[in-house]
Computed example of a mutant assay.
Amino acid sequence: MVGFTVAYAFTGSIAIASGIALVEPLVNAVVFFFHERAWRSEFTVLDVLLHRHVRD
């Protein structure tokens, strides 16, 4: 609901706000996964950007 409200306030469009409200939880889930791995120092942002594989 918060995502929809903020998107509607910025765009003034119910259609765009609805789309954002539907996509936002999916994006959050993906970001959360990578955030947790980075927090545990399993990789760095630079590793991801340069497509480096983590070696044990």
Rank of each mutant, 00 (worst) to 15 (best):
A21L: 05
A17D: 04
V27L: 14
V27R: 09
L49Q: 09
W39M: 06
W39D: 11
I14Y: 12
A9K: 10
A15N: 10
A21Y: 06
F32R: 09
I20W: 04
E36T: 06
T5M: 10
A29W: 08
A17R: 01
S13A: 04
P25M: 08
T11P: 02
V2D: 11
V6M: 08
F33A: 11
L50K: 13
R55M: 07
V54L: 02
H35N: 11
S41W: 06
F10R: 10
D56E: 10
V48P: 00
R40P: 01
L22I: 15
T44I: 08
A29I: 15
A21Q: 07
A29F: 12
L26C: 13
N28V: 14
H51D: 13
A7Y: 07
M1C: 04
F43C: 01
F32Y: 12
T5I: 14
A15Q: 12
N28W: 08
E42Y: 01
F34A: 02
F4S: 02
H51M: 08
S18T: 15
F32E: 10
F4N: 02
E36G: 01
P25N: 08
V6R: 12
F34H: 07
P25Y: 11
A21N: 09
N28C: 12
V54G: 01
D47F: 06
L26G: 15
P25Q: 07
L22Y: 13
F33M: 07
T11C: 02
W39A: 13
R52Q: 12
F34N: 03
R37S: 05
D56V: 10
A29C: 08
H35V: 12
A38W: 03
R37L: 13
W39C: 00
A9R: 10
A9P: 01
A21T: 11
I20F: 11
E42R: 00
R40S: 07
T5P: 00
W39Y: 14
F34E: 04
V23N: 02
D56G: 09
D47H: 13
G12Q: 01
S18Q: 04
F34S: 03
